Amino acid sequence: MDTIPAYERDPYAATLETRVLRTGAEQGRPFAILEDTILYPEGGGQPADRGTLGGVTVLDVQKREGEIRHFLASPLAEGPALMELDWTRRFDHMQQHTGQHLLTAVAQDRFGWGTTAFHLGAAVCDIEVTAASMSLRDLEVLEEAVAAEIRACRGISARRVSPETYKLEAVRSRGLPEGHTGDIRLVQIAGVDLNTCGGTHLRHTGEIEVLKLLGTEPIRGGTRLFYVAGRRARLRLDAHEKRNAALRALLGAPDEDLAPALQTKLDQLQAAERRVRRLEDDLAEVQATALATRPEALVEAHLEGRDMAFLQKLAKQAVSAAPTKAVFLTSETGGQGLFLLSAGEACALDVPALGKAVAALLGAKGGGSGKTFQGKAPGLAARAEALARLREG
């Protein structure tokens, strides 16, 4: 491979005629070492590129012991091979990464906030800065300042310098990687920033398109600042617009009234849920009285659609009113069978043993101790057999 790989010489190259020099496997994953590559290997906070090599999908690209390994979906033979880059993914990374350089520079120059970390996520990016906190006004000022530099279409260039020249440059950097030797790559945003970086970047700030700050959270004494840039920002806005359109249709309210309209619906739902709970309490009390007054020692009932909480409430009230009785309750809800066996304090029924027997008959999972055993079953087809087993004692 050339001293400078193709992804660095021309980050806009989407195809490359290259050659597979050597193949191997790492932990069962086949990889290829190439003569040259347009696929960026993971590093510096930027994820690895994706693409194809000789028609085979490249799953990952990593630096290992001075070489670049292209991990493949299947083994590939040595020899010439056409490499194709997933350009949409790459350009997204270029927008996010270049946006980070600009955001870091403006945050430092405008507020004195140093950047200590960068993360290019699949959906959202973030930088960690030394600010203990940020106000909403700070974020507004920062975002506007970044937008001004995007509109200025400031040129972006990369060059390599010797360690001696590097010491003479006015570089904004968190420092070189541990053990680094040889030339140092500098990325410059004209009139704004000069930084060490090995990643892929845009030609000018105008290609960032837009950078939107999303929010913050405290971290390690500083602040994590979330953002999206470029096409991600447009896709995010599109998703918000579609979501708002759906909410407008559901709530019958314009955008500015969606939150109040939703709050009204939630208040109404909570009030309805409270009424339902009161009605369920009343129903449980009536049904518990009916169960407690039945003559048999083991009373049973099937209550379609009731949850376990209702079965527990009903059983508790029934055996409290009739301590010498046992209660067997079942329900089917959401395609699942529920059962509960409970005995009063004066009832001699061996609930744990019989509960396990019922669970076995129903093919259920359950448990309990003392006076109550409950469980969930795929269905209640064997309910009659379970009831017969309980009546045997």
Score class of each variant (00 low, 15 high):
L266H: 10
R9C: 07
R231M: 10
R110V: 07
G379V: 11
A384D: 13
D49G: 06
L283I: 13
L168Y: 00
L21N: 13
P254Y: 08
H302I: 06
I33C: 11
A288G: 04
F91P: 01
A13Y: 11
R29H: 14
A309V: 10
M83W: 07
G51R: 01
I150A: 01
D126S: 10
E164K: 03
G368C: 02
V161G: 02
L311Y: 02
E42C: 02
G305A: 09
M1C: 11
R174C: 11
L251F: 04
E256Y: 09
Q312F: 14
A290N: 12
R234F: 14
A315W: 03
I189A: 05
L266I: 14
K212A: 02
G99I: 00
D350A: 11
G66K: 08
V276A: 14
I150D: 01
Q312Y: 13
R248A: 10
R137W: 15
P80H: 06
H201R: 03
A48C: 14
A315N: 03
H204W: 07
V192R: 01
A315Y: 06
K371C: 12
R274S: 12
E149Y: 05
F373A: 07
K356C: 15
R306E: 10
S135L: 01
I219R: 09
A377S: 06
P378F: 06
D49N: 03
L194W: 03
L102N: 00
F373C: 06
N195T: 14
L142P: 00
C347D: 09
D307K: 12
L390G: 06
H180I: 09
D60K: 11
R248D: 05
E285M: 10
D36R: 07
F339T: 05
R159Y: 10
T205D: 01
R69W: 10
D49F: 01
F71R: 07
L211T: 00
R89M: 06
A301P: 14
F111V: 04
D126I: 03
L266M: 11
A25M: 14
A377L: 03
G182Q: 04
G99R: 00
S133V: 12
R9W: 07
A73I: 11
R159Q: 10
V20D: 06
H97P: 01
Q100R: 04
D238K: 12
E149F: 02
P75R: 08
A382T: 11
A239C: 11
S342A: 15
S157T: 13
S369F: 13
L349A: 09
V299D: 08
R19V: 13
G51D: 11
L340C: 02
P5I: 09
V187Q: 04
L103T: 00
I219M: 15
E217T: 02
A346C: 08
R278H: 15
G221R: 00
A253R: 06
T52E: 09
G334T: 05
T200F: 04
L387M: 05
D2E: 14
G363N: 10
G355F: 04
